[in-house]
Each structure stands twice: as C-alpha cells, then as structure tokens.
C-alpha cells in the first residue's frame, strides 16, 4: 500500500459522510448537495430565466439578445474565420503572458535580494501599475507600429505587476531557518534562490498566474480595440459597428470561455507539477 493510499484512506474516513437513508432533506436538496452540481444548476437556471425574460418582455436583441440568439450569432462567420480570430487573440495573450513571466520573476528576485534595488524599482513599478494601460495602448501602437509586438507589449504591461508583487512576497516568505541553514552551509547564493526561495514562492507565483492569465486576455482585447484586423476583440468591435449585437455577444462568450480555459490550464499545471504547493500543511 503506497503512502498515497494511506493518506487518501485516512482523509476520506475522517470526512463526515452524508447518510443516504436518513429522513431529512428531500431528493432535490440532496442532489444539489453534490459538489459541482450547484454551479451548473445555477448557470442553467440563469440561462433559462434570461431566455424566458427576453421572449416574454420582447426585449430587442440590440439591448439584450436571448441566449438562443447569441448561439445564432456564432453562425455569422465561418468556423475557419472563428479559428483565425481566436488564434489571433490567444497567441497575443499567451505571448504577453510568457513575456510577463520572463520579466517579472527575475525582477522579483532582484527586489527580494537587494533592499536598495527594491527601493529604487518599486516606485517605478507602482507608477506603471497606476497608469491606465488602456490609455497608453494607442501610444504604444503608434510607437511600436503594426504587428503583434505592440499587442504583446500591452498584454505584458497589464499582467506583470501582480506577478512581480506576489513572487517577491513569496521569495520573502521563506522561513528564516532555511536561510540560516543555507548560510551555515556557505552555499552559493544562486542556490539559495533556486533551491529554497523560488520553490517556496511557487504557491504565491501560481496565485498570481491565475490572476495574470485572465488579465492577459483583457490585454490582448484592449490592444485589438486600438488597432487590429483580426482577433475576437476586433470581431466584437466590428460587430457592434455593424449593429450586429448578438454577434458581439457571441464574441464575448468566446472570450469568457478562453479566459476560463486558460485559468483552468494554470490550475492543472499547478496540480500536475507542484501538487505539494496546494497543501498548507507541513510548512
């Protein structure tokens, strides 16, 4: 029996189990008690109410299209065209996100290592974060010209602040005893970062990654609003300018799904590669 079996067995036996045959809550209540079912049921209920309200009150589709009309909106362009739009947005979001990680983590290491550097750089970071990136976007597009580069830059600017702050916090949250252990061994300073501080920051980095990855989609869309000839953001803007509101809504649905998928991918990566970082015990 492996260790996982033992811990799984002990944790499941510790959890109180709902008695199936006890009188009490009705069938519906018990079905709803199953985790995972509640959010799905809520979601379906909202869609139903939405659909019925649109039909009963005859809400014009340019004010609020019914869910069924939004589904029709998907048919406005071909599947090939959709893939092209989605890929344009997704690739910019992912490139910006990757660039942001590549910049934010080294900056966080510098901030954590040197108090002087931290005092020098931190105000600059706060200024960048305080700048409304939406307002800077047109300037960046003009300066950097056409192509993906300015869009990636905008995405990166929007996503990197939470990453820097969280990673720095994580690097500083390392137990002082481990730093003393490292010093007592007279180990190279780089190993203090790679073998102690960075792994300790992993849970902090992942909570920031979950925020940043959804911000990355926002960044890509903002950039497309300013200047683009494809992408889901572009599609939404184009649709509204043509007064095809249900079409714009279908674009919005695609964006939401994209954000959710990316968020879940980050979750999955943490579960697969850093399962220990999900438990607070044993630290």
């Amino acid at each position: 029996m492996s260790s996982q079996d033992i811990s799984a067995a002990s944790s499941s036996s510790a959890r109180p189990r709902p008695a199936a045959r006890q009188p009490g809550p009705g069938l519906a209540a018990r079905a709803l008690a199953a985790p995972g079912l509640v959010p799905v049921a809520t979601f379906v209920a909202i869609l139903l109410v939405w659909e019925i309200a649109c039909r009963v009150f005859a809400i014009p589709s340019f004010v609020l299209p019914a869910p069924s009309r939004i589904v029709e909106g998907f048919g406005a362009v071909s599947l090939g065209r959709w893939i092209e739009h989605i890929w344009a947005t997704l690739s910019v979001a992912l490139m910006g996100f990757a660039l942001s990680i590549a910049i934010a983590i080294p900056i966080a290491v510098l901030l954590a290592r040197s108090e002087t550097l931290s005092r020098a750089l931190y105000p600059i970071l706060v200024v960048i974060q305080s700048t409304p990136i939406v307002a800077v976007a047109p300037i960046i597009i003009v300066v950097m010209g056409a192509g993906d580069a300015p869009r990636v830059a905008i995405t990166c600017l929007i996503t990197f602040f939470p990453l820097v702050v969280s990673t720095t916090t994580g690097l500083m949250a390392t137990p002082p005893e481990l730093i003393e252990l490292s010093r007592s061994l007279r180990a190279p300073a780089i190993r203090e970062i790679t073998q102690i501080r960075l792994p300790y920051a992993v849970p902090f980095i992942f909570s920031a990654l979950k925020i940043s990855v959804t911000l990355a989609v926002i960044g890509a869309v903002v950039a497309e609003f300013v200047a683009a000839e494809k992408g889901v953001g572009y599609f939404i803007q184009f649709s509204t300018s043509m007064f095809q509101i249900q079409q714009a809504w279908s674009g919005l649905v695609v964006l939401v799904l994209m954000s959710l998928a990316l968020f879940q991918l980050v979750n999955l990566a943490q579960r697969l590669f850093f399962p220990w970082s999900l438990s607070e015990k044993g630290r």
Partner: peptide, 27 residues
C-alpha cells in the same frame, strides 16, 4: 556544525530522504 531548529522547517516539496541530503545538494 549541524543545526536542528525549533520548527523542523523541511522543504515541503521534497521527500524525507531528499530533505536529508539537501545540505549536500545545496552546498
């Protein structure tokens, strides 16, 4: 000189044996 701290302060991502060899790996 070896040190044992008040709290175990093990590396949470490392197995027991990984934690034991850690000083050597680190040095």
């Amino acid at each position: 000189v070896g040190i044992v701290f008040q709290k175990p302060t093990l590396l949470p991502w490392a197995s027991a044996e990984d934690n034991v060899v850690f000083p050597l790996r680190h040095k």
